[in-house]
């Protein structure tokens, strides 16, 4: 149904399965608990559910915009020029510039949203989840020197959106658990990072079940 809807508004998502991307992004291929990308903010910004949600939404927004921008840059500029190997340098610069621009736009047009997300935006630049997804969606195969992209632009953007939402889901869930866990009386050397990781360990066990959905 979602596929039909997308076709009716002009997207041509074939041979793309939107449902599969949603399940993979949110659950079975969750960017944090299954792929281990973006662990630093996951452990660092998960003290309160509110700030976790802010961080999650900032990551999602930047991830979508990154996919929208880096995919065409790779296919229409780097590949024709034969300089695919520059992708790391180009992508990281594009991401840094995008984050800076998003921060300026939010500050000017939406101060409310800026005060909610603004402090998390600079952290997003060096978040490996963003660069990881940008690298993932430009996967390609080379046959006889001809480069064929694995995903279409629509698929790349949808993946950016749902992996970002998967990130939000995981970080908000962890923040909810930390509200209780941080109040417990535990050995001194387990306080801080170790107990957070043990909490994440149980989450990873739960998400392991989803990986069987594939």
């Amino acid at each position: 149904m979602l596929n039909n809807l997308l076709v009716s508004v002009g997207f041509n998502p074939e041979p793309l399965d939107v449902f599969a991307i949603i399940i993979a992004g949110l659950l079975s291929n969750n960017i944090i608990l299954v792929q281990f990308l973006g662990i630093c903010p996951f452990l660092g910004v998960s003290k309160k559910p509110g700030s976790a949600l802010g961080m999650g939404l900032a990551v999602t927004a930047v991830m979508v915009i990154t996919c929208v921008v880096t995919y065409p840059i790779f296919t229409y500029i780097l590949v024709p020029l034969g300089i695919e190997y520059l992708e790391i340098v180009v992508f990281i610069l594009v991401i840094a510039a995008l984050v800076q621009m998003l921060e300026m736009i939010l500050k000017k047009f939406s101060p409310g949203l800026y005060s909610a997300l603004g402090i998390y935006l600079p952290l997003v630049t060096t978040n490996c989840a963003i660069l990881g997804i940008a690298e993932k969606v430009i996967a390609y195969t080379v046959v006889d020197g001809v480069i064929t992209m694995t995903y279409t632009l629509t698929s790349a953007v949808l993946q950016g959106l749902f992996y970002g939402l998967g990130f939000t889901l995981a970080i908000v869930l962890l923040a909810g658990m930390r509200q209780k866990v941080d109040k417990l009386n535990i050995p001194k050397s387990l306080k801080g990072f170790p107990i957070t990781m043990i909490t994440a360990c149980f989450m990873a066990m739960a998400f392991y079940v989803f990986t069987l959905l594939k």
Partner: peptide, 16 residues
Amino acid sequence: GSNAGAFLTYALFIAV
């Protein structure tokens, strides 16, 4: 070898 084991191992190593 699983993802959950990765978190547990890291937690134990930091604690020790």
